[in-house]
Simulated assay, not measured.
Amino acid sequence: MPILEYHLADNCYSDSQIKELLVSSSHLYAKVLACPLDRVRVFVNFYQKKHMAVAGELLSDGGVEAPYFHFLVLEGRPIEQCHQLLEGFTDLVVELLKVDRSWVRGGCWPIPAQYWAIGGQSASLMRANEIKARALAGESK
């Protein structure tokens, strides 16, 4: 489930900055949610400066670069984890992309498990099966 999208202006950052943002964000996401790294997906969407406006001014006309991100979590995650991710992803944008913190925006979208699929199977069903398998494994010890 862990999916993160950054929305950035094109041609503002080096490939090495973007690589570090993607890799560091992936590891942060997995750490905070205590989930396997192979479940994490991080994307960067780039937009032409003439297609972005901040405070009513196009970036191509001198507007301020103001990155935006959003990420998904299954409903029921502790709010503290969501806050850690909001702060952590903001910190990474500020540190790695050298953006003024006051211009960075981010959001967390909780998704009900019954509305999310993994490999075509409902996450709510997969979660129930994982819980059952853990219980059975515990009984056999």
Rank of each mutant, 00 (worst) to 15 (best):
residue 69 F to T: 02
residue 46 F to E: 10
residue 117 A to W: 04
residue 35 C to D: 00
residue 35 C to L: 01
residue 68 Y to H: 13
residue 52 M to E: 15
residue 76 G to K: 01
residue 112 P to N: 12
residue 64 V to E: 13
residue 37 L to I: 11
residue 35 C to N: 04
residue 100 D to S: 14
residue 31 K to T: 15
residue 96 L to C: 04
residue 137 A to P: 09
residue 46 F to A: 11
residue 55 A to E: 05
residue 26 S to L: 01
residue 60 S to C: 12
residue 58 L to E: 11
residue 51 H to A: 15
residue 95 E to A: 09
residue 47 Y to D: 10
residue 72 L to R: 06
residue 120 G to N: 09
residue 76 G to D: 00
residue 81 Q to Y: 08
residue 83 H to V: 07
residue 113 A to E: 12
residue 67 P to E: 10
residue 117 A to V: 03
residue 88 G to Y: 02
residue 71 F to V: 09
residue 109 W to M: 07
residue 117 A to Q: 05
residue 45 N to G: 05
residue 125 L to G: 12
residue 47 Y to N: 02
residue 68 Y to K: 07
residue 93 V to M: 03
residue 24 S to N: 11
residue 24 S to T: 08
residue 73 V to A: 15
residue 44 V to N: 12
residue 33 L to K: 01
residue 106 G to P: 10
residue 99 V to A: 01
residue 61 D to P: 06
residue 36 P to A: 14
residue 32 V to I: 15
residue 22 L to V: 04
residue 69 F to A: 00
residue 97 L to N: 12
residue 104 V to M: 03
residue 120 G to S: 09
residue 93 V to D: 01
residue 23 V to Q: 11
residue 117 A to T: 12
residue 62 G to F: 02
residue 110 P to N: 01
residue 28 L to Y: 01
residue 47 Y to S: 12
residue 36 P to V: 04
residue 74 L to P: 13
residue 78 P to Y: 04
residue 54 V to T: 06
residue 101 R to F: 02
residue 100 D to N: 12
residue 127 R to E: 15
residue 34 A to G: 02
residue 66 A to R: 08
residue 32 V to D: 07
residue 89 F to P: 13
residue 28 L to P: 04
residue 70 H to I: 01
residue 109 W to A: 09
residue 27 H to Y: 14
residue 60 S to N: 11
residue 49 K to D: 14
residue 78 P to E: 10
